Amino acid sequence: MEDGSRSTGQDVDGLAEQVVASARATLGDPAEWVDPAGYPEGLALCIIDSIQSIGVKYGGVIAVLNRYRALRRQHGSDPAADGTPELLTTFADLGSAQSWAESVGNANKTSTHADAPLKALAIEQAAQALSALGILTCQDLRDAGADRLQRAKQAWLRVPGQGSGTSWRYLLMLSGAPGVKPDRMILRFVAAAVDRPERTMSTDLAVKIVIEAAKKLGVTPTRLDHAIWRWQSGRDR
């Protein structure tokens, strides 16, 4: 069944068992898996990382994060504690998303379309969207009730290039909220484990499978997600 929205609980359970078997065979002892470090006090860094990291090698993301940290330290601030107000201040100080991309970010765009906006603009708009809902810090995000969190998600999905929801899920993970980031590494691992072509694996189905597999393994979905990511990226080989 290729459409995750029509998969039954039984289907997900069986597919999760296959992921469990693959995880045990390739990812090592679950007791030794770790959560992603994230930025539990730095919503600005969470936003930058979650948007900059989609569809690119992570080394470029680290470079952007380091330039942001350097900029903030030049102003005597602690980038690890920055929320949306501080992030938006950097855009205001530099004058535009284009200037922010040139000084802090890079030329990466939100999609492969020639006229796609810069990821820097998406970062600015995402920070504005969260701020408008009173979500200024990671603690605000973690404490948001279901209604406000849903409104924040919908606002985030309207930001250019963020409609798939992958960066939203990653944002939650980086901020300390549990979740699964169904990026290409997760999709690739799950598809291989259940013996399906990767193109037929929907993100919704992959999330359901990873969450169920995590239950069977006795770990959080975030920890299984991170173990898969480390394996797929070659960090645990």
Rank of each mutant, 00 (worst) to 15 (best):
L15M: 02
A16F: 01
E17W: 08
E17L: 10
Q18K: 06
V19H: 00
V20A: 03
V20Q: 00
A21D: 09
A21H: 08
A23C: 00
R24A: 15
A25E: 09
G28H: 02
G28R: 03
P30G: 06
P30M: 06
A31N: 14
W33P: 03
W33G: 00
W33T: 04
V34G: 14
V34M: 14
D35E: 10
D35P: 04
P36W: 01
G38W: 08
G38L: 12
G38N: 13
Y39G: 00
Y39A: 03
Y39R: 02
P40A: 05
G42T: 00
G42E: 01
L43F: 10
L43K: 07
L43D: 02
L43T: 04
L45E: 02
C46W: 00
C46V: 05
C46L: 07
I47A: 02
I47Q: 01
I47T: 01
I48L: 11
D49N: 15
D49T: 13
D49L: 12
S50Q: 06
S50L: 08
I51K: 06
I51G: 06
Q52V: 12
S53K: 04
I54K: 00
I54R: 01
G55K: 11
V56F: 13
Y58C: 10
Y58M: 12
G59A: 05
G60H: 06
V61A: 07
V61R: 00
V61K: 02
I62E: 05
I62F: 07
A63I: 06
A63H: 07
A63Y: 05
V64N: 00
N66V: 11
N66G: 12
R67Y: 07
R67E: 03
R67K: 13
Y68K: 01
Y68G: 01
Y68P: 04
R69Y: 02
A70R: 11
A70L: 12
L71G: 11
L71H: 14
Q74T: 10
Q74N: 12
H75K: 14
S77P: 12
S77N: 14
P79S: 13
P79D: 09
A80H: 14
A81Q: 14
D82I: 08
D82W: 07
G83D: 08
T84A: 02
P85W: 05
P85Y: 05
P85R: 05
E86R: 15
T89F: 10
T89R: 11
A92V: 09
A92C: 11
D93C: 09
D93A: 10
D93P: 06
L94T: 07
L94F: 10
G95W: 03
S96W: 03
A97M: 07
Q98A: 12
S99I: 05
S99Y: 00
S99N: 03
W100M: 07
A101W: 01
A101H: 01
E102S: 15
V104T: 09
V104H: 05
V104S: 06
